[in-house]
Simulated scan of single mutants.
Amino acid sequence: MTLWDRIETTILKAGRRTLGGLLETLAAQKQRRKETEFSIALIALSAKMAKADGVVTDDEVEAFRDFFQFDEQDAGKVRMVYQLAQQDVAGFDEYLKRVTKLFADAPAVLEDVLDCLFHIAVADGVAHPRELELLDRTARAFGVKGAAYHRLKAAHLGLGEDDPYLILGIDHGASEEDIKAAYRALVRDHHPDILIARGVPPDLLKIGEGRMAAINTAYEQILTDLR
């Protein structure tokens, strides 16, 4: 059974006509499938971020295929989940509340979801102002701030003028020993095994690559400046 088979089964069992209602149901369950919940939450928010034209086009499904790497046989299931989110009258902010509630006990997962949303938003090579505004709102709702948010922006929008110390979450006066300790902790937190344990589907492990690239760049820049 593929991830998309499990998602379809979850939706049918819940008997929900909207994805927002399904998110509420999942949050109340004691036994939960992290991978399924992660994917449903991500698609729900992605659909709400997309231009609300009321129609799910083949191009939109193709964009999801590039990111989620699903087979042709699962395309219909992806379309179903996407349509459920777009058909829901609840707006983007309401979905943010539901996803935040779903992962209230796992703030690191919310950061992973936001990372994926960044990836999808800039997939066409352009960071549109409207999308950036929605990403900022998502970060505030999820409580992703400080070093964590700087890492995501650096990963997807370029390091630019971002302070490398902010990327690593350390003070400018930190010793080289503290800098290396912070770096090692971040490398450990972004290990693929850790991401999988949080519920990130194996096909989406690439989301950690951008963050690690930003972390490595910041670390190397700091060490270079110290010498």
Rank of each mutant, 00 (worst) to 15 (best):
T10W: 08
H190Y: 13
V55H: 08
H128C: 08
A14S: 09
D136C: 03
A214N: 01
D66C: 04
P192R: 01
Q86N: 11
R137A: 09
D115S: 11
E220C: 13
V144Y: 03
L226R: 13
G143V: 08
H156E: 08
T138W: 00
G21R: 09
V99R: 06
A90T: 10
P107K: 14
D74C: 01
L195R: 09
R130P: 02
G20V: 07
K77R: 12
L12R: 14
E177Y: 15
L110I: 12
Q31M: 14
I40M: 06
V113W: 04
E209N: 05
F103D: 04
E161C: 09
L204G: 04
A14G: 05
A106Q: 13
E94K: 06
A174V: 07
V187K: 02
L22S: 09
G173D: 09
V109D: 01
T36W: 10
V55F: 10
K101I: 06
P202M: 00
D58G: 07
G146W: 02
D136R: 07
L132W: 06
L84E: 05
L168F: 13
L117C: 01
T25Y: 10
T100L: 10
E24G: 09
Q69S: 14
L159P: 03
T224W: 08
I7L: 12
K34E: 08
D225C: 11
C116F: 01
D189H: 10
L19F: 09
P107V: 07
